[in-house]
Design a binder for these strands. Sequence first.
DNA 1: GGTGCGCTC
DNA 2: CCAAGAGCGCACC
DNA 3: ATTCAATTC
DNA 4: AGATGAATTGAAT
Lengths: 527, 527
Amino acid sequence: MDHHDEDDAHLSSQIVEEEDLLFDDGPSEQPSLDETTGNADIDKITAQHSDIDETLRVRLAGPSTSKVNYHALQRLFTFIEFLINYYFPIQAGMDSVDKAKVNEIIYEVSKGSSFFENERKKDNAVTGRINALLSKYERIKNDVLSEEFIIVDNMIEELEDERDLNQCIVHIDMDAFYASVEELDQPHLKTVPMVSFAFQAVGGIGMLCTSNYEARKFGVRSAMPGYIALKLCPQLKIVPLNFSKYREASAKVRSVFEQYDPHYCPMSLDEAYLNITEHLKTTNKSPPEVVVEIRDKIFKETLLTASAGIAANKMLAKMCTDVNKPNGQFYLKSELADIQEFINPLSIRKIPGVGRVTERVLNALNVNTCKDIYPQRAMLYKLLSDISFKFLLRAHLGIGSTSVDSEYVRKSISVERTFRSLSSRTDLYFKLKDIAQKLAKDLESKNLCGKTLGLKIKLTSFEVRTRAKTLPGNIYKQEDLEKYASQLLEKELPVSLRLMGIRLSSLCSRDEIDQKGVKRVGICTIF
Amino acid sequence: MDHHDEDDAHLSSQIVEEEDLLFDDGPSEQPSLDETTGNADIDKITAQHSDIDETLRVRLAGPSTSKVNYHALQRLFTFIEFLINYYFPIQAGMDSVDKAKVNEIIYEVSKGSSFFENERKKDNAVTGRINALLSKYERIKNDVLSEEFIIVDNMIEELEDERDLNQCIVHIDMDAFYASVEELDQPHLKTVPMVSFAFQAVGGIGMLCTSNYEARKFGVRSAMPGYIALKLCPQLKIVPLNFSKYREASAKVRSVFEQYDPHYCPMSLDEAYLNITEHLKTTNKSPPEVVVEIRDKIFKETLLTASAGIAANKMLAKMCTDVNKPNGQFYLKSELADIQEFINPLSIRKIPGVGRVTERVLNALNVNTCKDIYPQRAMLYKLLSDISFKFLLRAHLGIGSTSVDSEYVRKSISVERTFRSLSSRTDLYFKLKDIAQKLAKDLESKNLCGKTLGLKIKLTSFEVRTRAKTLPGNIYKQEDLEKYASQLLEKELPVSLRLMGIRLSSLCSRDEIDQKGVKRVGICTIF
DNA sequence: GGTGCGCTC
DNA sequence: CCAAGAGCGCACC
DNA sequence: ATTCAATTC
DNA sequence: AGATGAATTGAAT
Ligand SMILES: Nc1ncnc2c1ncn2[C@H]1C[C@H](O)[C@@H](COP(=O)(O)OP(=O)(O)OP(=O)(O)O)O1
Ligand SMILES: Nc1ncnc2c1ncn2[C@H]1C[C@H](O)[C@@H](COP(=O)(O)OP(=O)(O)OP(=O)(O)O)O1
Ligand SMILES: [Mg+2]
Ligand SMILES: [Mg+2]
Ligand SMILES: [Mg+2]
Ligand SMILES: [Mg+2]
């Protein structure tokens, strides 16, 4: 499991400013976008659907949630039902359209590739984990577990003490951020031709960073390789990234946040938490009215739309943002009953921190929606780690952190690159040098050094390995990074690689180290 | 009935270029838009709903169709139903929201005004007409009418001869035209604050010409007085008209039409028919592909969106445009079966030429949707005029004119003005002079003169009267217009008026008349 | 030909 | 308190 | 301290 | 044929 979000400890990956991801290596020709080749006999593929590898199919569909937006749908349903009853009682009938078709296409197009085989391996590993869990589950599922129920219920009481319903937390997330920024300069991308955005070009088009809502209708999503996106949507317009533009837009947005909460906590270029409790005292607007105002200012400032969630804590606020996603907001009142009503029907996948693997695991344990957590609590307590279990309990109770703070201490820094597969030691060492150089530059600009050096390699089979060494003192120079990384690499040879990366952790500011790299004793240390 | 559209005779009101509607009379202060006064206790009004005056309520709601878009809804239903069945079997329940509420508010706000009383009078008149029809209907409804069936079925055979399925007719209509043009210059109008557009200012805000789709959610429509729109939507942003901008945009759009059909037939600034049969021979694109291309060019040219319908004739094409209205298109294949399937479920109100009165009449005769026309054909034949009946038959059969031609001969020209009520003869004659002057100017610019002069007056009670006189020769000079109009007005005095207008018909070009105003003999006359 | 009405944008 | 303006067609007289 | 897997944007 | 990059956290060893 993960739960890097939502702890007392600071939210993970808070910043990720995605600086200079414009590469200086590799063949930097613009990928020819008119390459509308291989238009895919999609219908043929679609026809022959089989049920085997269903879980793989789902996994291959990528990490994005999709499925169904319960609350938004709920509103739609009531409105539709009203129309139906009011105007005519209608009866219809049809079968599958989108989701399954998209998954099927991705599956067929992927089949056979190294990537595919590696994914199959991972999938099998998950299946193994699940089976192990299930056999434990089988053993206990008929037990009464009265002791466990007591323990858990005490635990819940303790967690309840964490609950703070007095803060008004807002989560704001720009809609299709990079895509929308591009549309500002090229308004024709907004409509009929649907666009999306290439990340990098090694051989082909590379990976997509995001897609506009037009493209999403075709199943085109973040983190999808370009060539698959083109199968799903041959007209797809692909445009290269312009980080500086996104950073500019982000700065404008943040200047608005600043006005409502000077301690606002940015989570990425397009996303932040605000605690508007204090601001509310200065106005007689209601929370949703304030948030409309914020989004309005953002729009006036950038011509970009944002969505927002308003709730008692960060977890709930984030979940609320999803409810009315493009260009909408959702206000969850800080009442126990409202919170329960909101959380219960949601798929556990909507909990931030529950991804596709955790979802599969929990589904196997008959936990599909948040309301399923409570009746299964004793069983989950026995099967999951303490941290994971408490994470789920908090989610089910709608309890989360309310601390919104812009202070941020980086814990690691890294550079990694994918390339056409290499095996020769000289080629590898050459690449490694580039990577070390880039990392050294980054360390320089951030005035950082670190004691733990990590090497990451990805085999051509997509298997990933990491090796690390904690050194006696802090390093930051290119030559040091290269030297220790090379030592780690040496032990892995011979290998055929498609990626290498270097990471430095156990960081500290260079101002704090003496010449030998040993960290000076902090002034405020306790002796 | 009407049926000015869809005949062999040219489509009515083809042009209506809405020239210089910027008034030179009346107090031309900009209406104070911040006048957010009288914010309406809407909920109070809404609470006390009663069923009396239901038809009046509907009438007061204004002429726009609204109700329900069957085909669009059908698609929505099937998709929603799929989601429901696929993800969870849900049951909901709710009551009235929009339509009824809007009608109720309009009704309550209008009640008591002169306008309201006049509308009530008209409504009663329609009720009377319907009752007369119904008593005829009662007498014959149990007859077998076998003769009539035979006659009608022969008529249908004849009409079938008119059917031409070999043309590809496209109807294109810009979305929320004036509103969208304004949004180009003021993009912030696009979203949260909803906008709409004032026509004229006498005392208050005047009439709205159109509203953007945001405003339509509140029930704000074309031809609604501003003060009612503000009750429905107090945040409504009202902006004055800028005809020159709309004309510019229209010209750009038409330049696109020109490329696909040089004989395209504009029906208004934002609307035209094209016959793309010839164009299709020059490409291997399908009709919908060509239309996507057209709409795409329009967008690239103007940044405005258009909707389109593609079908075998003008009537069907126009109906198709409505199916996917904002920014969409619908292609109806030119197959008998498809046409029937398309037409049958539609409300008769969707037939262009069937307005709110005809709808009420037909509903009273148990004709609600187009498919009801056929079984009722003998009855309708006996109750309606030959022209009206044939009009309905054609609509039901999906038969319509395919002639698309830009030639246009104007049949009348007029100027009319509303003002704060006047009664004194001197005031009235003074106004009449202004009107005559404006008409003389228009006649000058179009090089026209005419033989029939009409006076239109609207009493303060909203009762409208027209008087006309056909003169021995053609006139066009301000003094002549004024003289004859004054003679007609004189006979009506004393009256208290809110509008006067002068119309000239039986037109001909000034080049064709001799000095006495008598039309010269046409060169091509047959003797 | 004159008048009223319905329809369209 | 507050409901447009331009144009066309049909029905009836 | 090391490694791997999961998660997020 | 073609499947990112930066960062965090948790679990296991
Ligand atoms: N997997 C990824 N790899 C690289 N960049 C990503 C990835 N996912 C998202 N991003 C970048 C591009 C996005 O525009 C930006 C913000 O992400 P996110 O808020 O999740 O989606 P989005 O803003 O594009 O759409 P939306 O928020 O409307 O769903 O972060
Ligand atoms: N009484 C009226 N009814 C309709 N339109 C009118 C009226 N008076 C003036 N207009 C003008 C304003 C409109 O923008 C323009 C085109 O009308 P129309 O195509 O019916 O609506 P629209 O283009 O505003 O919206 P949409 O076509 O999306 O329904 O004609
Ligand atoms: Mg976003
Ligand atoms: Mg985001
Ligand atoms: Mg329009
Ligand atoms: Mg129109």
